[in-house]
Design a binder for these strands. Structure first.
Lengths: 349, 349
DNA sequence: GTGAAAGCGCTAACAA
DNA sequence: TTGTTAGCGCTTTCAC
């Protein structure tokens, strides 16, 4: 049953000493070879690599972290991993991180401050080299813990007056203006907005940008048509139901995210209402699914790739060059409208 | 700008010594208090906790791991994090893991053996206490690495003859039989199957179970109607296109997963074909989205919660009781049909 | 260019 | 019940 165990003693995994012994060098040389941190002669280096291979040696990350103080671990906290926006974001972030020799630790806060707090504590215990908080504005209470420990941090949509913190500003305004403009051009005047939960920064921003865009387009703003929902499929259903109760319901609705919009699509269908003929629907995020809804969703794209890149860049800069006073501390990610099939002129046009 | 730094010296984080000094006990007592690994008198324990709080002390996980040999890290490798099935699985797994004091390290193999290999190496370097490989059958080449290092491992749908490995068997058969039965009862005879990629174990199993179910229902099996696709939205579109080219196309189609089915829904819509009137569609997985497609998707449920529980249980048993020869090494997760709106009698019935 | 040795922060064995 | 001490596996001075 035993596979070839070559050199090492029966049960114990090879460590740096085993390698050193086999290569007939000191452990310092092994370390230098692995990290190519100093000149090691070709002759020795070759012997070391050969021993590493033969032993199938893997350095122990914990030992490395302990002495070097760098864990090569990046934390990313998202709001809710079951909203496809976040896996897509994580995927991009992980790709970049791994390419740069980092590992990522993913946590989902599920919009629960207690959970968020635990996430943060765990990341701190694991000595994350940096933390990206992609919860879009529910983060206030626990940031202190991170910042106090001098861990670089990057936040979406939340400015922090601390040298260790960077911010990614999201320009929803552009995309939302485009969306309102698009609907106005189609002939819509009565446009509703299904907002995200008001405890979310981003939800509020989106809502305000909607109001601003309506104003800019000279369209009437009806308070009752701005409805607070969640950012979930289910709340899209609820939101739609509330909308259709009005005697003169709006002809178009912009949703604070795609999940909401997809919920609306579903609810409209169940009520026999046709999208886009009877109601135009616009989402926000442009998750991969948006292209595959029925009808394909017109939506405001928020690039996960751009967001992930910005987050990584911010963290990396802080980690690698912590004392540079000229570090870029603010990053901007923009949005833009993607027109698909869920928008059309209002009924009777 | 300085926040209250209480006791510790200006820049350095408090360590176990700092706590011991402040509480006027030995570091061993601090360690014992934290781990409540031995009797510590209330008096001292109280002093220790008080010092910990005052210093805002967080134990260093890497140091703990180094000496104890347990990282409290569980790896989970999934096939593709952007398929909603996996985030849903991860969420359940994380919940259980965290509740039991474990952290999880997530990796996406993206069906790339090279990536998978790196994932495995990274997990090994980080000394994961256990690894769940939820890639459903593309794992062969790299399992050795893990098993050789005596790390407990659990695999979906892949049996390994090693005492450190457990398996979660997936009983697709039940659900697929139900689906075929359901369609047969509606009056369908010409049923197609859009299969997953043939390099995936699970895809093959599902396909074979489909064939068996058709046979059991006494329905004709047409080889040309079993089409290999991917497990993605896009390949659902391609799959549908290939299906409709037939002069007498099938009246129903079962898809190897929900993403595929949702792609079919979309493609059918684009071609002006109505689901379920013109074509019945069945998915597999029952991702959260399935309830929100248009029409709501009839699908075979594979519970992520059950799967996550089984995976955790398997790992935990191996970790906590490694030498028990009577450990449960096989777990079963079943499937069942969920009837929604995407199935109906065939046209002309 | 290479090696010896100190020590990262902690747990666990042993003493008291 | 509590303290002392020896490492866990590695990186990093500091000699040579």
């Amino acid at each position: 049953m035993a596979r070839k165990t070559n050199y090492s003693s029966p049960d114990k995994l090879p460590d740096i000493r085993t390698v050193a012994a086999l290569a007939k060098v000191s452990i310092a040389t092994v370390s230098r070879t692995i990290n190519d941190s100093a000149q090691v002669s070709d002759r020795l280096s070759k012997r070391v690599w050969q021993a590493i291979k033969q032993l199938n040696y893997l350095p122990n990350t914990h030992a490395r972290t302990l002495v070097s103080g760098r864990s090569h671990l990046l934390g990313i906290i998202v709001e809710n991993i079951t909203n496809p926006f976040f896996p897509e974001l994580i995927q991009s972030f992980e790709e970049i991180a791994v390419a740069h020799g980092y590992e990522i630790l993913i946590s989902s806060s599920n919009s629960d401050p207690a959970v968020l707090s635990t996430c943060v504590r765990r990341l701190l215990e694991r000595k994350a080299d940096g933390v990206a908080i992609m919860t879009f504005g529910e983060e206030e209470p626990f940031i202190d813990q991170i910042v106090n420990r001098n861990v670089p941090i990057v936040l979406a949509e939340f400015k922090l007056d601390d040298p260790k913190a960077s911010t990614i500003l999201l320009d929803y305004s552009t995309g939302i203006h485009e969306a309102v403009q698009h609907l106005a051009e189609l002939g819509h005047r009565e446009i509703a907005f299904l907002a995200g939960p008001h405890n979310l920064h981003s939800a509020l921003t989106r809502e305000n940008d909607f109001i601003a865009a309506m104003r800019a387009a000279d369209l009437p703003i009806q308070k009752k048509w701005i409805i607070e929902c969640g950012h979930t499929l289910k709340s899209g259903v609820t939101g739609f139901e509330r909308l259709r109760k009005f005697t003169a319901p709006p002809t178009a609705v912009i949703c604070s995210n795609d999940m909401l919009a997809i919920g609306v699509l579903r609810a409209a269908y169940m009520r026999g209402m046709r999208v886009p003929q009877d109601l135009s629907v616009v989402g926000l995020d442009d998750i991969d699914f948006a292209e595959f809804t029925l009808p394909p969703l017109t939506t405001i794209r928020l690039s996960r790739i751009d967001l992930a890149h910005a987050a990584f860049k911010a963290l990396c800069a802080q980690i690698e060059d912590p004392h540079n006073p000229h570090l870029q501390r603010e990053f901007l990610v923009s949005t833009s409208l993607v027109v698909r099939g869920s928008t059309a002129p209002p009924p009777g046009r």
